[in-house]
Design a protein around this nucleic acid. Sequence first.
DNA 1: GCTTGTGAAGACCTTCACAGCA
DNA 2: TGCTGTGAAGGTCTTCACAAGC
Lengths: 201, 201
Amino acid sequence: MRLPQYIRVLNTLYGESLEVVSSQQLGEMLQVTPAQIRKDLSYFGRFGKQGRGYSIKNLLAGLRQIVGLDRHWNVALVGLGRLGRAILSYPGLVPEGFEIVAAFDSNHEIIGQTVGNLKVQTVGELDETVTALDITIGIVAVPTQHAQVVTDQLVRCGVRAILNYAPIPLQAPEGVKIRSVDPVLSLQTMTYYLVNCSSPS
Amino acid sequence: MRLPQYIRVLNTLYGESLEVVSSQQLGEMLQVTPAQIRKDLSYFGRFGKQGRGYSIKNLLAGLRQIVGLDRHWNVALVGLGRLGRAILSYPGLVPEGFEIVAAFDSNHEIIGQTVGNLKVQTVGELDETVTALDITIGIVAVPTQHAQVVTDQLVRCGVRAILNYAPIPLQAPEGVKIRSVDPVLSLQTMTYYLVNCSSPS
DNA sequence: GCTTGTGAAGACCTTCACAGCA
DNA sequence: TGCTGTGAAGGTCTTCACAAGC
């Protein structure tokens, strides 16, 4: 799914007050062939004009709707260690419609603290809060050994999408979308290519 | 490239003192078909034994070598805001052979500070340090508007792989591997599926 | 009997190349 | 002329299904 990346660069172009962009230009920015971009977009509609390109504003609006960014998403954050706090303070979520509206931890030294406007709750309160605030997305930023139980709990409460920062593959039932952020996997993928694909000198 | 994920779960299994694992079991843990796993592994060699499965220890050693984890990788971290500090304190890098051996920032309030054993240097010292310490991997954790120039500088110093935390697609010359960690893209991918693939009720 | 390794088949994704429209 | 939208071609990745080996 490349639409989010398209939205990314369209946001930038929109911020630069540009009006129109071609598949050629988008392709260069994203290191993707123009044909690829046209195919991707044509699947969802006819956004472009021949001879001109795509209206940045229109395309952006169209894509944002398709990806579901024309609405607000309430998010629960579980785990308020260093990583959780970094996520909470990240300013990039709100402009895209994602708002962390509840924070949970199991450490009694952290529970009750106020971190960035939110009072940290016990994981025991998860069920009640998730339901009350209509939370559909969870972010798991707890130590590895607790990640699966936290996930199970989130799923039981009705959360449908989970962004996982723990370095293990999480299990979840059909219908629950999981995506993992794992820097070590990314680094290892790169070392693989460094070791195996370096140009002979 | 799925090898890093295989290494992940093999590490876990190894820690549980298990000896042998089948493609079936690995597949369940990773939500991948057994055939997929056998194909992946067969590309690199014949690691398994019919009727038994794969020796966890042997497979792990084999894969670690293929991915280049049988050696040590020196890493430079650029940007020591909240995110950079979270990365620096992440204990998962060293066991896999990645060591952050230098830290850089452009903020004069941060330069000179000691963060987790490392003295934060100015980005002006990047060239010298990267060369002196034989650093081949860079982590970019700076504000969006500085990410591209920092990348260019790392590339000039000879860094061959960059892990990017800034929410923009970075440009780099052929031969330099870039991988981006972007939670917002992950969230948007999930909302896309939530909005478009939810079972009709 | 159980599980691998693998050719063949199938599904999916990407690129090509061009008609058609601004 | 310039660029999109799109069938067709080409390529890659995944699954199937089974012979071979433990």
